[in-house]
Design a protein around this nucleic acid. Structure first.
Lengths: 247, 247
DNA sequence: TAGTGGTCTAGACCACCGA
DNA sequence: CGGTGGTCTAGACCACTAC
């Protein structure tokens, strides 16, 4: 049993449940509790930290709210497996003719190392000269190109990806990061704007240069809140659609 | 004192705090508690409903989470004044040259009654022939047209707006609904897509017909969850920018 | 100083789940 | 059946706000 007051890094003036949240979150970030796994029972944690059950519940409740944990009635509390879903379904109209099933696929069409450049550097907290691994990925629906991604990941850390066989990129990318590097994406920030297709983008998407395209800039963050990946995605503007619910 | 079990419309099998939430929400919808006003103290409500303080707190907590209430430490709990903000700032880049202050204004440029038509009817739960009040509103920034809104509100209910002087539309619309009709907008759902400017839209926005535009369809809902207003907004695509945070 | 919401405790019983 | 989270109670003290 180690009382909460033992926690070193925490400000003693903070409420106990806040310090508990920090302590629990730390165990997830450290990998002591892995995504998909169950954490100890509330009662066990409460006595371990020397607090009342209700206080521990409030701490866990907060982490559930933040999306780090997931409760399952009668079974336990689990570390949430980040599932940021598929950008395709999030941002594009994917209604097949007559409600046919759609088959989204993705293919690695380019991979090289180089300097980060201004945008990626700013998002990743690097300087423009720092080396990153650039991935070009094409996403298709029903065999038609729909989105072209240009992805930057910082190089010391993501170096193993440079030698991963291209076929392994045919699934989703974030699970790949987790399998190959043990890196977990917890959050992402997207910025949607609008532009015209450059020659290169037009070639990838099989449209004409200058055609309207939607531009989605995304920065993905890890469990510790630090940036992991930056990407700029282009897709045909006329197939774009996004729903927002306000308050 | 009236016990929770007295509540008629609620399913007795539901947890007490859920039924409390319903009961409190009803008071807001009925106008017994008005936006901006403080509700009775937690302790008072707890004894009124014959439940423990913690249970009442959990109910209130839920309504705060849903955005219906707002707690202010040491002062009280207040009915939240819906502030859906300004679409201009939500969806458009509004950076003045050299960080100059921007002056968004809005002007009513059209008002007539007519049939709802397919889109508005579907959003408002009407049939296409039902009469609605159509409002055309132009929003400008620094004197430049930025967004043109075409707004539909159901006619029996919003009839008084037909005779409100045009100058009164120079402020925000939702507060106007509240002042003139006692109607509160609690929530809105937006759908963003891209298209090309029609001749009419192009004329309003001082751009060329066929130029790329962003199309924002919005349905606004009242405190009871029913649809109140439907609008379709157009703005120049190249000035559009929207940020999304995922998980 | 009085009243509000914010935190915390220590218990109780219930509903759900898997073995 | 035993263990888990879900609900509920009845207190206590603290921190903030207004007067």
């Amino acid at each position: 049993m180690h009382a909460v007051s033992d926690s070193v890094g925490s400000d003693q003036r903070l409420p106990i449940y806040q310090r508990l949240k920090d302590a629990l979150a730390e165990r997830i970030q450290d990998g002591a509790w892995k995504p998909g796994e169950a954490i100890p029972a509330e009662s066990e944690l409460a006595s371990e930290f020397g607090v009342a059950l209700g206080t521990m519940r409030k701490a866990i409740e907060g982490l559930v709210q933040q999306g780090l944990l997931e409760r399952r009635q009668g079974r336990g509390t689990y570390v949430r497996r980040a599932d940021l879903g598929n950008t395709l379904f999030r941002f594009f109209r994917l209604t097949g003719k007559g409600g046919k099933a759609l088959a989204p696929t993705q293919r690695l069409v380019g991979r090289r190392t180089g300097p980060a450049g201004r945008d990626a550097a700013q998002a990743l907290g690097l300087t423009a000269d720092d080396p990153v691994l650039w991935l070009d990925r094409l996403r298709l629906v029903d065999g038609q190109p729909l989105v072209i991604d240009r992805i930057a990941v910082p190089l010391p850390r993501f170096a193993p990806l440079a030698s991963v066989p291209a076929e392994k990129f045919e699934g989703l990318l974030y699970p790949l990061y987790e399998r190959e590097l043990g890196v977990t994406v917890a959050r992402a920030a997207d910025r949607i704007s609008f532009g015209r297709a450059t020659a290169a983008v037009a070639r990838s998407l099989a449209i004409a240069a200058g055609d309207p395209v939607v531009v989605i800039d995304r920065t993905a963050f890890g469990l510790d809140g630090g940036p992991l990946e930056w990407r700029r995605s282009h897709g045909p503007a006329d197939r774009f659609s996004y729903d927002v619910d306000i308050r």
